[in-house]
Amino acid sequence: MKNSFTTIGKTLTAAIAVLAFGAGAADAQQRTRITVYTAIENEQLPVFKEAFEKVAPDVEIAWVRDSTGTIAARFLAEKDNPRADAIWGLSVTSLILFEQQGLLADYKPKGYDKLKPLFKDQTAPFTWHGIDAYAASICVNTAVAKAQNLPIPKTWADLVNPAYKGKIVMPNPASSGTGYLTVAAWQQIMGDAAAWQYMDKLHENVGVYLHSGSAPCVQAARGEYAIGISFDMRAASEKTKGAPVEIVVPTEGVGWDMEASAIVKTTKNMAAAQKLMDYSSSAEANRDLYSKYYNVVADPDAKGTAPNYPAETEARMLKIDLAAMANNRDKTLAEWSKRYDGKSAPK
């Protein structure tokens, strides 16, 4: 018996050693390592990292990547003692919130002047610049639509067609930024009262409200539901993977969000973080990185080359007052929850 417990003791010692040293066992190079928070797609991380580190060989990126909501929650929770040095690719609505709380550094990167006006912070302090935009859109599963003899919708208004009863999925605006920007866009297009009337009718057709902005399109792509309200990037990537989906950009106009970059005010590696911002706003990054994955990017000269994106998105993007949208959020969500949460038992 004694032997086995001695073994356990040894294992424990080993485990503690791993804990103590494993934590600090990063490579001992002289490069400055900066922690970068991001919500860009996982597959893009190594590409972005490699590209930047080629330009700035003395800096190393350590990614912390998760979905937009999770990263934003994490960043805000850490605000008393921020762990991130910079942000590269997080929804601008989150960054505006961070800016309001004084968490971002004032810095105009080298590429600032050239970027499209929409894609940069126009008021002091100048904390963020956009890299790409993604817009709300409708994912329609053509196979399901054909099998069930459903028309392909062209507009938001089309979605209240009783034929779609129970066949639409959309993100819950209380759980998902995409969900909220969609609702906000409806309010802007139709006016407040009409938008609620619209959503009342739409509610009849919604099978399920999902907790993430990607999920509706993923579900539509798999044919779980015929129609998913989601954003174009996810729709394009599902289509590329082979899903029978058609991406509809409603003609009334679409809500959108932008992925943006910023420096965290408390960073101890300001020089490295600035290098990252300079690169993030550069023509090279727009050309070599963003335009490969997104259709709408910050640099006016970069042409989106990502496959399966609808061409009309940029033209249909609404003029949005991001600050107003952020301010209305609590009120809208409370109303939304009152109308659609209480009777949420599915039928």
Binding site: A73, S175, R329
Partner: peptide, 8 residues
């Protein structure tokens, strides 16, 4: 989840 992740 809604409160924390959705709305921070």
């Amino acid at each position: 989840y809604k409160q924390v992740i959705g709305q921070q």
